[in-house]
Nucleic acid binder design. Structure first.
Lengths: 207, 207
DNA sequence: TTATGATTTAATCGTTTGATTAAACAAAAA
DNA sequence: TTTTTGTTTAATCAAACGATTAAATCATAA
C-alpha cells in the first residue's frame, strides 16, 4: 500500500518532481532540459524521477498535457458560450493576460514544442469544438453588417497574437528596453484594455 | 594559400556548412541540434565542421549573428527615416511578412534563444538607435492630436506581434486547422493589408 | 612528375546524458 | 520486535555527444 504522504501541508516527492519538471521544461524546453536539472530543482535523486515517472519522455508528456489542458480550458470558458462578441474579446484579453502573468513561459514553450512535434497537441486540445460558437457568431454578425467579414483564423491570430506576444518576447523587451519588473507589469496591465480596444475598433463597423 | 573554390556556380564546403547550420539551428534550436545533424544536412564529415568553425558554439554565433543583422537591417530601413507614420506601418507589415515568408522559422528561433541567453542580441542589435526617429514621431503626432498617446514599446508589440505571430504559430495553425500551404499563404497575404489597417485604425483619431 | 599545403575522412577520445541496479533506509503490518 | 513493503540513494551502464587525431585525398606550384 502507498505510504502516508501529504501530512497536512507537506508535498509528496512525486508532486515535487512534477512541479520541478513543469518549471524547468517550460523555461528551457525539452531538449535543453536534463533529467539532472529536474532532480536538482526538486531536491531529489535522479533515480526517484524514474521511479515515479519511468522516463524523461513520460514526465514531459504529463507536463505538456497539463499546460495544454489549462490553456484549452481558458479558451473554452471564454469562447464557447453565447456572450456578445465584444465581451468575449474583452474577457479574453483580460483573463488571458492574467493567466499568462502566472505562467509567462507557457506560450513560448508550447509554440517551441509544437514545432518539434506538430501532432503533440492532439491528445489534449480540440480546437474545432471550442471555437464552433465563435465561428458562427463571426459569420452572423458579418452578415448583419455589424462587423467586418473575417476568417476565424485571422480573428484568433489577431487576438492571441496581441495578447501572447508580450510574453513571447518578454526576455528581449525587458533586456533591450532596460525595463524593470514594475514597468513590464504596468505595460501588461495597460494591454488588457488596449488589445480589446484595438480589435473591437477594427472589427465593428461605424455606420 | 586557400584552394580554389566557387568555380562558377559551385558552393564551397565552408558555405555549405554555414547554410546547413542556419537551416537546422533555426528549425530545431540550439539544444536540439546535434553537430552530426548539421554535418548530415551539409553532406560532410563532422571533422570538417570543426575544421572550418572550431566548435558548435562558434558556428551557432555566426548563424544567429546573421539572423539578427538581417532583422536589424529590415527594422532600420523601415523605421529610421522621415516617412509618415502610416506609411511606416504599411511598409513594415508588407515587407516584414514578405521577409518572414522566406525565413519562417527565424522568429521562433530568435525568441527561444533569447530566453536561453538574454544578452545574446547585444552584439548585433541596437534597438535604441533604430527606433529613435519612431519614438519622436509618436510623441509629436500625439501632441498634435493626430494619434493616440502610445508607449513605443506598446506600438512595437502591436506591430511585431500581429506580424510575426502567424509565423510563430505556423505549425499549430496549419496542423489544427488542417490548412494547406496555399491557404496559409493566402492568409499571410491578407494580413499584409489587415495588420496595417488594424493599427492605423486604432492609432489615428477621428475628428 | 614530384613536392607542398589544403581539405576530407575514419577512427577514437573524454564527457554528458537517460536509465538501471542493488543496497540502504523508512514506515507500517504482523 | 521482527517482517514486509514502499521509498531513496550511490554507483554504474550504454548510448549519444562535441571534439580531436592521424591518415588519406586532392589541388596547385615547382
Amino acid at each position: 500500500m502507498t505510504q502516508e504522504i501529504n501530512k497536512s501541508e507537506e508535498i509528496s516527492t512525486e508532486e515535487r518532481i512534477k512541479q520541478a519538471a513543469a518549471k524547468v521544461f517550460t523555461q528551457k524546453g525539452y531538449a535543453a532540459t536534463k533529467t539532472r536539472d529536474i532532480a536538482e530543482e526538486a531536491g531529489i535523486n535522479i533515480a526517484s524521477l524514474h521511479y515515479y515517472y519511468r522516463s524523461k519522455d513520460k514526465l514531459f508528456e504529463i507536463v505538456i498535457g497539463n499546460a495544454l489542458r489549462q490553456f484549452s480550458k481558458v479558451m473554452d470558458n471564454i469562447f464557447n458560450n453565447d456572450n456578445p462578441l465584444d465581451e468575449k474579446i474583452k474577457f479574453f484579453a483580460d483573463r488571458y493576460i492574467t493567466f499568462l502573468k502566472e505562467n509567462p513561459n507557457v506560450p513560448l514553450f508550447m509554440l517551441s514544442e509544437s514545432q518539434r512535434n506538430p501532432g503533440m497537441t492532439d491528445k489534449f486540445m480540440t480546437e474545432e469544438k471550442s471555437l464552433g460558437k465563435l465561428e458562427k457568431q463571426l459569420r452572423t454578425l458579418a452578415e448583419e453588417g455589424v462587423i467586418r467579414e473575417i476568417h476565424p483564423a485571422q480573428f484568433m491570430l489577431n487576438l492571441v497574437g496581441l495578447t501572447a506576444f508580450p510574453f513571447l518576447s518578454k526576455s528581449i523587451i525587458m533586456h533591450k528596453l532596460r525595463m524593470s519588473d514594475e514597468q513590464y507589469d504596468q505595460l501588461l496591465e495597460e494591454r488588457k484594455k488596449m488589445v480589446a480596444e484595438i480589435l473591437i475598433n477594427y472589427l465593428y463597423l461605424k455606420k
